[in-house]
Each structure stands twice: as C-alpha cells, then as structure tokens.
Design a protein around this nucleic acid. Structure first.
Lengths: 201, 201
DNA sequence: AGCGTGTGTTGACAGATGCTCAACGACACG
DNA sequence: CGTGTCGTTGAGCATCTGTCAACACACGCT
C-alpha cells in the first residue's frame, strides 16, 4: 500500500478530529473524480487514507453522510463566487460571470462533472443540496445584471437557463466552437432571455 | 406476498422468455419511480414479479444491464415524438413541441424525473444513452423550426437550451406561473436563442 | 510520578446484496 | 414413451455497509 494521503510519510497515524475529517473528505474527493459514488467502496477510502474502515464510520455515520460532506465541501470550494467588476455595465458583469464559469469548467472538468453526477446518486439530501445551490445562483446573476424584484417567471426561466449553460459548457468542444464565440453567445443569450422573461410578466 | 404483477392471479409461473422480460422491465419501472436505482434491491424486483432472484439474473446478466433495459425501454416509450402540425408556421410548430413536453411532464412527472435521475446512477452506458437521446432531439427541433445545416454553435446552444427547458418545466410550479405563460415564454425563448446562435456563426 | 478519563483507533462480527452453480421439472417432439 | 430443451430454483460465495466492544495514547488531576 502506498503511503497514506495527507500524512508526511505514513508514520503518524493519530490526528486531531478536524484534521482527520478534512483528510478523509480530501481523499474521498480524489477518488470520486475517477468513479461514481456507488463504485467507491469505503474500504478504498480508508485504505487510501491509511486508516481502518471503522474509523471512517466514526466520523461519518453512513456512507451517504460521507458523500454529502464531500459534495458539500467541494461544491463550496468550486462555486466560490468570482469577482465581478463593480462599476462595469451589466453586459460586462454578466460576461465576467460566464467567463468565470467557462474557466471553472476548463480547469476542473473532471471535478465538476463528478460533482454534478452526484445529483443522480440517489441521496435525497445531495439532490436538495445541488438544487438549493442552483437556486442561490439565480439572485446572484440577477444582481450582476442590475435587476431586482424579478417575477416568478423570470426566476424560473433563469434557473433553467443556468442549467442549460452548465450543460452547454460541459458539452462544449473547443475544437468546433472557439472560446470567444461561446462566451459571447452565452452572455448575449442570458441578457436576451432576461429581457424576454421580463417583457411579459 | 401480494400476487405477482403481470400475471392473472399468481397461479401460472412459467412464461415465455419475451413475456418474462417485458414483465420484469415493467416491474422494474414501477419500482424505479419511487426510489433511485441503488435503493432498489433485485430481491424486491423478483418478489414483486413473483419469481426468484436467480431468474432475474437469467434474463439480465447484471443489475446494470437490467437497469439499462428499463431506462431504454421507458425512454423510448416516453419520448415518442409528438405530432406536429405539418403546414403550420415555425412558431406554431415549436409551440407544439414545447406544449407536448410540458404535457409529458405534467402527466408523468414522477416517471420522467426517475428516468433522468438515472443519469447520475453511475453506469456509463446509461449516461451515454441519455446523452445520445438528447443529441437526437436537437435536429428534431431544428427541423420543426424549419432550419437545416445548423452551425456547431447552434447545435451546441440548442442542446443546452433543451436541457434548460427540461429543468424549467420540471421545476415549474403551476401555482406561481400560469401554464400559458410558461409555454409562451419557452416558445419565444427557443426561437430567440436560435436566431441569436445563427446570427453570428 | 502515578492514575483516571476522554478520545482516536481497531479487529472481529452481523446483515444485506450482487452474482454463480448445479440441478430439477415441465413441455415439445420423435 | 423416451429424450432433450429451456424456464426455473435453492443453496452457496464474495463484497460491502454498518455495529460492538475493547485497546492505546494523550492530557489533567492529585
């Protein structure tokens, strides 16, 4: 067995509770990127961390809890809101958000898909987590566009638009569509969709 | 145990191979609507069908194979293309497609979400199946809009749009957004998105 | 220093589930 | 009536999740 992840050289096994938790989440995250959750035995997580399986259950009562913790932690880390130019026009601010997301996927394609893949994993709490994460995104984008008090239709439509954008960027092949073209289109698409939804509320 | 599903009264156990396969898929489909795949033990499927677990493995070599068969069969049944008015204008034809999908979700919300939920189930073949099903949808919508030879960006954008629409309709709450408003918006949104994508290819 | 308490840690065990194997039995056909 | 094909099954194996009781190391108290 290779030396445990997150420990200097396999020697020290005893850790503080917080450090252990963090390490386990880190290890789980590594493994999750190469295989879906139900193909990831806790045995392997424990082995990769250099501890016994039992200890894992000491920190996370069930496998689902562990999975939820991993997804929640990494979701926060990945979706940390990008900086948007404060004084710029709405177009530029939206473009910044789009560009930020495209860059996110470019850099972490594997991680990101692994994260979203979890939505179907089956655990209701994970589904809810992803749903609420998406919900939280809508006001942020609305804010960047300089809108407030959006109608129900607007919020619904933008939520759908965001999911569509996710899919678009993930399915995007840089060889057939240049990056600029993608970002331009998505930016214009968002603003158009917003106007359309607001125009008839 | 209740009388097996798909048999007259629990009496006859022996069936033709095709009938048995169909019955098992039907049973699996019923159970899939109330819980995700990995919470559906094959024991229960077998019990619900009134057969032994072993027989299930006789027809489907692995659980994943069984699941794939269920998703494929039901996907075809659900996504049977709706009739679109032949001579009508593109707007009306797109509206017909949108309306058809909304109705589909209205009638089979549970089934539909159960089906898509499988995307994350982890089996690569199921993921591919759903992806290719979505891909196949793009030309159909393009066709209804009277477009051909779409650019790569157009196809990519519309694929994303379709996924966004899926999400929108599933998340739609009829109490806060009237049905007409939803259909109108989605119809206009599609056409706008199409124009936008084509305008700069 | 000695000792006890808290807590990180573990091996052994139990229950569930995917999957295999060898055999049984009913129906068709010569 | 014999024979073989094929639907069917019970028993068994391997893997994985989750439990339990006990061990060991650190720290506070006298």
């Amino acid at each position: 067995m290779a030396s445990p992840v997150g420990t200097p050289a396999g020697l020290p096994t005893r850790m503080s509770a917080d450090a252990r938790r963090a390490q386990l989440i880190e290890v789980g995250w590594e493994l999750l990127q190469s295989r879906p959750i139900h193909e990831m035995p806790l045995d392997e997580v424990a082995a990769a961390a250099g501890i016994s399986r039992t200890l894992l259950f000491h920190y996370f009562p069930t496998k689902a809890d562990f999975y939820l913790a991993v997804v929640a932690t990494m979701g926060e880390r990945l979706l940390r809101p990008p900086r948007i130019p404060a004084g710029a026009a709405p177009v530029e601010r939206i473009r910044a958000l789009v560009d930020g997301f495209v860059r996110l996927v470019e850099r972490n394609r594997l991680s990101y898909t692994a994260l979203v893949r979890g939505a179907g994993g089956g655990d209701q709490r994970v589904v809810d987590l992803i749903a609420s994460t998406r919900d939280a995104l809508v006001p942020r984008w609305l804010d960047a566009a300089g809108r407030e008090n959006a109608s129900a239709l607007t919020r619904l439509a933008l939520r759908g638009w965001l999911v569509g954008m996710e899919e678009t960027v993930i399915a995007w092949d840089p060889q057939s569509v240049p990056r600029d073209e993608l970002v331009n289109h998505l930016t214009a698409s968002f603003l158009t969709e917003l106007e359309l939804a607001e125009g008839r509320h």
